[in-house]
């Protein structure tokens, strides 16, 4: 009976795969030429990389709500009761500690570079934020808990900063031009950089906090 059920399931899923494959390989009726529209409006977007222009200008609403999703996930994690602290955690080795102190400045520098590069080439707040979060997690694993303990005390202000700045810009554009997130082309580049800078910080802090989860920090600094 069980073999029959799994065979039936496999057959059904193979059928689903076939239908999906047929669907995605069908020719698409040409609609509006979106790449050309984006390329045409790139001059007024404030950045020269089309993906960044879409993320922060043309579809800025998506990115704003994406930051809100991160915040909601963080709120969900912080709502959980804290786990009991792990027993018998090994002391941090000297190699890891030295490696972390070598790598941390480089990681922070590359994260900021990625943010800056996002205007003209692949990069941006999310890539930089992921890298900065990796730096934070490395610091956590290398036992630099005191820094992260301080961070945890300012967790919510730091995590909300990105959304707050984004909302402030949205409110400003609504008041000035009447269009929500319709960035004026003269200042679009600066505004995008400001939004991305604060978003980078908030994304990194949120990702580190999500990695930390509900576990409470132990002070392992010597």
């Amino acid at each position: 009976m069980k073999a029959f059920a799994s065979a039936a399931l496999a057959l059904l899923l193979a059928g689903l795969a076939a239908v999906l494959a047929w669907t995605v390989t069908r020719p698409v009726t040409p609609g509006r030429d979106v790449p050309a529209l984006i390329a045409g409006a790139l001059d007024v977007s404030g950045v020269s990389h089309p993906v960044t222009a879409v993320l922060l200008n043309f579809r800025g609403y998506d990115t704003l709500l994406e930051l809100v999703v991160l915040l909601i996930a963080l709120a969900g994690v912080r709502c959980l009761a804290p786990l009991p602290p792990p027993r018998g955690s090994a002391p941090v080795g000297g190699v890891l500690r030295e490696l972390a102190s070598l790598l941390l400045p480089v990681l922070v520098l590359v994260a900021v570079y990625l943010l800056w590069a996002g205007a003209t080439r692949p990069g941006g707040a999310f890539q930089g934020g992921a890298l900065l979060a990796a730096a934070g997690i490395l610091a956590l694993l290398a036992g630099r808990d005191r820094f992260l303990w301080r961070l945890e005390h300012r967790l919510w202000p730091l995590a909300c900063l990105g959304v707050a700045v984004f909302l402030a810009v949205a409110a400003g554009t609504l008041a000035a031009g009447g269009v929500l997130l319709g960035l004026p082309s003269a200042h679009a580049g600066t505004l995008i950089l400001v939004i991305e800078g604060f978003a980078l910080l908030s994304i990194a802090v949120t990702l580190v906090a999500l990695f930390l989860g509900t576990g409470e920090l132990e002070d392992r600094d010597p």
Partner: peptide
Amino acid sequence: DPLPQALVITGIVVAVA
């Protein structure tokens, strides 16, 4: 086409969260 790429970046972050 940059639009799906931007959507996928958004999707990846949401998936990670």
